[in-house]
Design a protein around this nucleic acid. Structure first.
Lengths: 145, 145
DNA sequence: TATTGTTATACTCTATAACTATA
DNA sequence: TATAGTTATAGAGTATAACAATA
């Protein structure tokens, strides 16, 4: 007969704790990897959207990233200030800004992308490719359900 | 020869996106489950610590939960206001407050605990017990590494 | 009248600094 | 001199409301 309690007060046993802290650890790693390129995770996300596919309006990018359009303004302000993206009125609808990567921005994205992938790989290095793939599958299933 | 790009701009393919949104979804579910009992996730964490083991000082609870001691003040203020916990000076060291669950607080914890577990189970229902156990193992390994 | 980008504002969450009372 | 609790304050992050330009 064990004297151990059936449950403990250790928060590290809760799935919520594990998810939250795994997220934080990955974010810290990727932010650190992106820092030399002058972008944070959110900005990298925007570059990623802009690097693939057609030029888009601010609102389209915001919706893809799941952020408010007012948040997008400050984000693009920072990227534009550093010469990573350009904004110009859409000739077809002058209410919109067409946002595009500059040549320098494309290079930044390529470099940052490699660093980002390396950070993700480092985060996963302890668990092996099978468990890593299983992790993504499970998370996707949890989000779909 | 495929015309598909090797990568896409869809953020849903990134591990960081999956982790962040899985965390948010679970938090939303547990917060919703706890709401009828008048506590949020953080407060439930405090109740959980207090429900197991010896009475503790505010600082000890704060450290177990990984929050600042100034954050603990407002958290306990709310719980005390609702009659869930009591604070009294520790006779052995009057700088400290001994924090304990009231009888009502214990009942609240029991009820909230069942609701919390049900919410977690509902979150996991799409993936089966094997995948759920594997998820926890993988997350623990990622946090330890 | 509705939409896009912008600005100003407010709100949440949390941490830092300073104060008090105790040790 | 150091520690526990408290309070006031500041910072990051994000959302809401209102406004200008355009459709």
């Amino acid at each position: 007969m064990s004297t151990e309690p059936r449950t403990t007060s250790d928060p590290r046993e809760l799935l919520g704790y594990l998810l939250k802290h795994a997220t934080a650890k990955l974010m810290a790693k990727t932010d650190e990897a992106l820092a030399p390129f002058g972008v944070d995770g959110k900005e990298f996300g925007a570059l990623r959207v802009l690097a693939h596919g057609e030029p888009q309006s601010q609102l389209q990018v915001a919706r893809t990233l799941g952020v408010d359009r007012t948040t997008m303004v400050a984000l693009l302000d920072a990227l534009e200030r550093r010469g990573t993206v350009t904004r110009r009125p859409d000739p077809a609808d002058r209410r919109r800004n067409v946002v595009e990567l500059t040549d320098a921005g494309r290079q930044t994205y390529r470099d940052a992308s490699a660093a980002f992938a390396a950070a993700e790989a480092e985060f996963l290095e302890g668990v092996g490719p099978r468990a890593a793939a299983q992790l993504s599958r499970t998370l996707r299933a949890l989000l779909d359900g």
